[in-house]
Design a protein around this nucleic acid. Sequence first.
RNA 1: GCCGGAGUCGUCUAGUGGCAAUGACAGGAGACUGUAAAUCUCCCGGCUUCGGCCUUCGUAGGUUCGAGUCCUACCUCCGGCA
Length: 399
Amino acid sequence: MNKFFYEVTSSLGDERFARVGVIHTPHGEIKTPAFIPVGTQAAIKAVSVEMIREAGAQAVLANAYHLYLRPGYDLVNEAGGLAKFMNWDGPTFTDSGGFQVLSLGSGFKKTISMNQLETVNTPRSKRYAHVDDDGVFFKSHLDGSLHRFTPELSMEIQYNLGADICFAFDELTSLADPYDYQLEALDRTHAWAGRSLKAFSQLRNQNQKPYQALFGVLQGANYEDLRRKTAKYLGAMDFDGFGIGGAIEKSQLGEIVKWVNEELPANKPKHLLGISEPDDMFAAVEAGVDTFDCVSPTRVGRNGAIYTLDGRYSVLKKDYERDFSPLDPDCNCYTCKNYTRAYVRHLLRAKEVLGYTLASIHNESFTIRLVHDMRESIIDGSFHELKRDWLARYYKNKK
RNA sequence: GCCGGAGUCGUCUAGUGGCAAUGACAGGAGACUGUAAAUCUCCCGGCUUCGGCCUUCGUAGGUUCGAGUCCUACCUCCGGCA
């Protein structure tokens, strides 16, 4: 089976929402809903592919922007593609670089909540990225060199990286951008979606490689009209699936996902870009999201934050100095089976790389398992109970 | 014993007579959602009604309006000579 396809196998009733399915790719299938760990530079930071596989990962996601700058997409292609290059035996995703070009190369930070107003409000004119209708000029975060991305180049990069699922080149906006700009950017993202699809189709036709899927990316910030508009517009195009991205206020996440999933074709997979907090994922799965990716499990893990069923805590706190129990008593991941809080705390404080590895393994396992449990609960009809009970316990000591 | 050098917040360290006194590390608290992130922010002598107040730079005196900074003695440490 070389062709990409998705099938819904179970749902709570309406197949657009709270559903279970399978994404079939040339390199294997992904049982959804599923969490996809991020390995930006063709590596899950501090975690080997064996470890991330054991943590339950079905696929991994890398980034076109980073791999374009280093080591170069021609090199990855020569190595046999992203999966072979990084020794990952399974499906892979690549993000288009649109997000990075505007949020990283530009020195402008993305946000999904208003907690980071300071960075959100960085004036557009001060960013190291310039958007025009044809593409984006940006400076490399590595050496400051000037580069230009267009939808066509992003497609060429991603096609050569060889991921099973690629994303159209889109323009990320910020919650701080006014409505007029959101609209202007959305129209540009639509034009770029068309160019991405055309360029990617040509690449597929010109080559004999296994089928690579292309997902359209939805922007529109928190505006219902823009979100529905982009869902209708992109939904009518020949994309294999959709990525829901852009600036989203946390409190509106579920609502926004529901809007777009009411408009998008039900028989195609929906990926929510960059989200992994448990409450967000519950809201998103309920609203019909099939896959997630996020850097949070590894990033916060490296900084000592550990997810458990009773909430997230910092293992760096003195309370855990002599705590010889596992990071999470309810977990059976490699870390929790073999190591203690006192040990991981010691490693992280001593900046031993193994500490980053062990914390990341646990957080990835936790996140993957949570979404997997949501999947099971949809199958047996207990999703709403799981959501209620799980969140009640998780936030019992907080908020 | 003589000569020279040095003693500053847990540690190392900055400090022209005029700010509780620099920086780093350690320590404490917080942040982190398509990874410029093994990062970033804040606190780090005591008290505080947050305007300040008090106690501090080996010890004890002295000079001075004012001393971590100058002088004297002592203590300790490090060099060198005996």
